[in-house]
Simulated scan of single mutants.
Amino acid sequence: MLPARHRLTERADFAATIRGRGTTRHGSRLLVVHARPAAHATATDARGPASRVGLVVSKAVGNAVVRTRVKRRLRAQAGEILPHLPPGTDLVVRANPAAAEASSAELGAAMRHCVRDLLVDEDI
């Protein structure tokens, strides 16, 4: 489970991360990752701006059971890469239909690959 400060929950934040100015994206067969740089950080506390992750898993991925399983796996993988993100970075991870058949390790590898390509100076 992602801590509350690391969750992207507002519709406007999702829209800004997916379609906003200065955002980038990278995709694979399993998922697409959209990144919004730290310059737009709004969620801050005593520890500084928080990196946040939002998940989009549509009905095209499968029924409710399959979607929930994919979200749970993506959340676990996102928790592992959060410490490696620059502070204040927002990510939206959109699952493609092929994610329904992927293992947790495959989803994690795809997510790390996409994030590594988006944030070239980070070692994830």
Rank of each mutant, 00 (worst) to 15 (best):
G27M: 00
S104A: 14
A43M: 09
S58L: 00
D90Q: 06
H113A: 15
P86R: 08
L85Q: 04
G27S: 00
K71W: 04
I81P: 01
G108T: 05
I81K: 06
V120Y: 00
L2M: 06
L55F: 14
D45S: 08
I18A: 01
T9F: 09
R69Y: 03
R94A: 14
R69F: 07
T9M: 12
D90R: 12
V93Q: 01
R36N: 08
T17C: 12
V93G: 12
C114K: 05
L30F: 10
P49R: 07
D45I: 04
A78R: 00
G22R: 09
L31S: 04
V93A: 09
D90P: 00
L85R: 08
A110I: 03
A35T: 10
T68V: 06
H40S: 13
A16D: 14
L118W: 01
V56N: 02
A95Y: 10
L107Q: 07
D123T: 03
R47C: 12
A39G: 11
A100W: 06
R69E: 02
D123P: 01
R94P: 04
R36E: 08
A12P: 10
R29M: 08
V57F: 02
H113D: 13
T42W: 02
R116E: 06
H40G: 00
A43Q: 13
V93C: 00
A41L: 06
S51I: 11
V33L: 07
G48F: 08
I124H: 13
N63Q: 10
L8N: 05
G88P: 00
R11G: 11
L2R: 05
R25E: 11
L31Y: 01
G48E: 14
T24K: 13
F14C: 08
T23G: 07
R29T: 10
G108C: 03
P97D: 07
P37F: 13
D90G: 11
R19H: 14
A35E: 01
A38S: 14
R67I: 04
I18Q: 04
R116M: 10
T44R: 15
L74E: 00
D121F: 04
D90I: 10
G48M: 02
I124C: 13
G62P: 01
G79K: 01
V32M: 13
Q77W: 03
P49G: 02
A98V: 01
A98S: 15
S58V: 08
E106M: 12
I18S: 02
A15K: 06
M1P: 15
D123R: 10
A38E: 05
E101R: 15
E106T: 11
A4M: 07
A60H: 10
T68D: 07
Q77Y: 02
I81A: 04
A38C: 05
T9D: 10
L85M: 00
L55G: 00
D117K: 15
L119S: 07
A100Q: 12
